[in-house]
Amino acid sequence: MIEFKNVTKKYRNHLALDDFTLSLPKGKIIGVVGENGSGKSTTLKLISGLIRPSKGSVTIEGEDITRKVSSAKVSYLSELDVYYSFYTVGETIGYYASLYRDFNRSKAEEILDYMKLDRSKKVKDLSKGNRGRLKIAVNLSREVPVILMDEPFSGLDPMVRDSIVKGLLSFVDFQTQTIIITTHEIKEIEPILDLVILIKDGKVLQMEEVEEIRIHQNLSIVEWMKKEYE
């Protein structure tokens, strides 16, 4: 459904992706792993349309990705811990509900309840954990084919991580939605992944079914990653 064809992404002074080719199937939970600077975030940003390939093409359902194409099909959660600080939780949801036609307001309300977020609280007064939860609420409330999450757990305590994983399982429609997650906290998402993609130095090193790794190699993802990296 999402295709990277010989994608190169150059920044001013470094090469983020190098002749990167990848085909992502529909309806799966996909983990993108690799060390810092290996190109995980760049991969997601290319799907989100926030950046463009220097060479090659990235397509979604056959269409070249632009900001416009992506905004209709992709819900992107940035790794940055920023929202409009002048809004309350409720107003943030209201803003996104007005912006996206595919935004499911009642689902958002359910997630806010589930995450126990106070709607009247200002975003700037939220704890880091609750800002993380709010990001997830906005991210998962959109009824789009692709949900991207860039480091959803980073800097969050185990309680929050747990509520994010449970929220994901509860509120994603697995028949129609594909989830792509980049993370360092592999253990956190290990049991919920279908596929894992290992990236090294801007190239795809491996793409495997997680259960196959366990069945055939008797390895956890972290062990497998270490083995493949060597």
Partner: peptide, 17 residues
């Protein structure tokens, strides 16, 4: 399948399997 996935914290496709 979904309830079981949430209860046990695993992928719904895994539960299906």
């Amino acid at each position: 399948v979904r309830e079981m996935a949430i209860q046990s914290g695993v992928n719904p496709n895994t539960v299906q399997r």
